[in-house]
Design a protein around this nucleic acid. Structure first.
Lengths: 130, 130
DNA sequence: GCGGCCCTTGACGTTTACGTCAACCTGCAA
DNA sequence: TTGCAGGTTGACGTAAACGTCAAGGGCCGC
């Protein structure tokens, strides 16, 4: 037997609402087991959820996150599907590279912004001294 | 005299719609000059627009982008405001660091996904060979 | 002076990603 | 047995970020 989770277990642990979790399932990002009506989440579901949250942090849409999750198991893939999966992977990689560039640029701008702020602050303080 | 742009100039060059540009202004991210009714964009406006697009690529909201743009000139800042600006800068920096971690993790997952795909593909092809 | 092109301001529609009830079942402790 | 904590579906509301008309003004070449 393996570890399972209730929906509120995951909600607490990952700091999201149960509504969000159900919504992700509605959108096809999750497919937990059921015990009667009740949802039973596996460790793999939890991994998927973490992937979703990670994706969201870097601006991925839920549709993109779903693709990523689907890439997670290439079972039942015919040749065409597998090739399209590889293409999607390459696409995502390019996107990530672009994001790295964007983040580096943002950091530089934060540097100059900080510099100006500290200078303006020094000015303010020296004037207050007079 | 300096270089200026019409709204459609910028729309073409940055590959966005004029509607989007007007919306950003409506949200306080831009404040172009006017010649009568007509909007006249400066080089600085263009920089702001690029910053917006960069921000969006890494998942920033327009509100966050606006903050970044506001950080761009600390003029008219009293001491309290300047300190709050420095705090915001630090906050954004943390966010960027987290995103870097997330991107690295994503890359790793793409690696394993690709590996599985190519293996599944090899399987498919070898079976087709028989 | 008229059609075409670019600009403007509304105003309403749409998609995404949930929030927020309502109404109901269900096991279990008091 | 009752009442509560935690689960369910369903329906409607909402914020963000624009898209999509509609209606009109300004200039320009023919």
């Amino acid at each position: 037997m393996s570890t399972t989770y209730s929906i509120s277990d995951l909600a607490r642990e990952l700091d999201i609402t149960t509504r969000a979790i159900r919504f992700y399932e509605e959108q096809g990002l999750l497919a937990p087991e059921r015990r009667g009506q009740e949802r039973i989440y596996s460790a793999r579901d939890k991994v998927s959820l973490k992937l979703i949250l990670r994706g969201k942090r870097i601006g991925f849409s839920l549709a993109e996150c779903r693709e990523l999750i689907e890439l997670y198991d290439p079972t039942g893939g015919n040749q065409i599907q597998l090739n399209s999966m590889l293409a999607k992977i390459a696409e995502r990689r390019e996107q990530l590279e672009q994001q790295l560039l964007d983040i580096e640029q943002m950091k530089l701008e934060l540097d100059t912004a900080e510099e100006r702020c500290t200078q303006a602050l020094a000015q303010t303080i020296s004037q207050a001294g007079h």
